Computed example of a mutant assay.
Amino acid sequence: MDIDRSHVVVVGAGPGLGAGIARRFAREGFDLTLVARTAGTLDPLAGELRGAGAQVRTVTADVADPATLATALAPVAAAAPGVVVHNVGLVVGDDLLVDPPEHFAHALAVDVVGAVAVAQLFTPAMRAAGEGTFLVTGGGPALHPDRAHASLTLGKAALRNAVALLHEQLAEDGVHAAGVTVVGVVEPGTALDPDRIAEAYWELHAQPRGSWTADTVVDGS
């Protein structure tokens, strides 16, 4: 089975880091599928990229709902894209001892289970082809727990371990799975400018087989 080496899917293609990742791969001539919960999030970025000459498809889907996510992304997965980036996180202030368990269950569905669902949708074609790249956006709370962002701390810690498992398991089939751990607040014009961080994703994708790493930390401090 072949994959489309010049097709990248960006799940969580918002105006910040998702846009930077999309622009970086577009500069390399990739066709793009952008995924977000609402068309209002997708349309401005899609318009920008199309104006620069990129081929862009948009899909609205919620990673917290695996069943509808699978339905929405099934046609995209059938096209066997060679690169998939999962760039999703629920960033809210909360308290481990105050907020209800349902809140944390939802946060974990967004931050962790969604990434697993996306991996299960897209990596079978990569494994069959013996190549491909699956990248995930992590976060600083996985390294430095933040009591003011308890759900994000739990989610990013679990996600980091999920990526470690994916890295080991998928490498056996020739697929590179890795994470980018972003420490700090993503903001244009700073050390954590989205376009700067996006270079880490391209560098992971471009790593030669045999030199694959599981994680890159981009620290804005």
Rank of each mutant, 00 (worst) to 15 (best):
S6D: 14
H7G: 11
H7N: 08
V8E: 03
V8R: 05
V10P: 01
A13P: 01
A13C: 03
A13V: 03
G14P: 05
P15G: 04
P15K: 06
P15V: 12
G16N: 10
L17D: 04
A19G: 14
G20E: 07
I21Q: 08
A22Q: 03
R23E: 10
R24E: 09
F25A: 04
F25N: 08
F25V: 01
A26S: 12
R27F: 03
G29A: 07
G29K: 01
F30W: 02
L32T: 12
T33L: 08
T33H: 09
L34R: 09
T38R: 12
A39I: 10
A39H: 05
G40L: 04
G40P: 00
L42P: 02
D43E: 15
L45Y: 10
L45A: 14
L45P: 05
L45V: 15
A46G: 15
G47Q: 11
E48G: 14
E48M: 10
E48V: 14
R50W: 11
G51I: 12
G53Y: 07
A54H: 05
R57A: 13
T58C: 11
T60R: 10
T60P: 02
T60N: 09
A61I: 12
A61M: 13
A64Y: 06
D65L: 14
D65S: 10
D65A: 14
D65Y: 13
P66G: 04
P66W: 14
P66N: 05
A67L: 06
L69D: 02
A70K: 02
T71R: 06
A72E: 06
A72K: 03
P75C: 00
V76A: 00
V76W: 05
V76I: 15
A77C: 09
A77W: 07
A78I: 13
A80Q: 04
A80S: 15
A80V: 09
P81R: 02
G82P: 02
G82Y: 06
V84M: 05
V85G: 00
V85Y: 05
H86R: 13
H86D: 07
N87E: 14
N87P: 06
N87K: 08
N87L: 12
V88M: 08
V92W: 09
D94A: 02
D95R: 15
D95K: 10
D95M: 11
D95L: 15
L96Q: 09
V98A: 15
V98L: 13
V98M: 03
V98C: 05
D99V: 08
P101E: 06
E102G: 10
H103E: 06
A105M: 11
H106W: 11
H106G: 07
D111C: 00
D111V: 13
D111Q: 13
V112N: 02
V112T: 13
G114M: 10
G114R: 01
A115H: 13
A115V: 12
V116I: 11
V116C: 07
V116S: 05
V118C: 10
V118H: 03
V118M: 01
A119Q: 03
Q120N: 08
Q120C: 00
Q120W: 02
Q120H: 14
L121C: 03
F122D: 01
A125G: 09
A125C: 06
A125Y: 03
A125H: 08
M126E: 07
M126V: 07
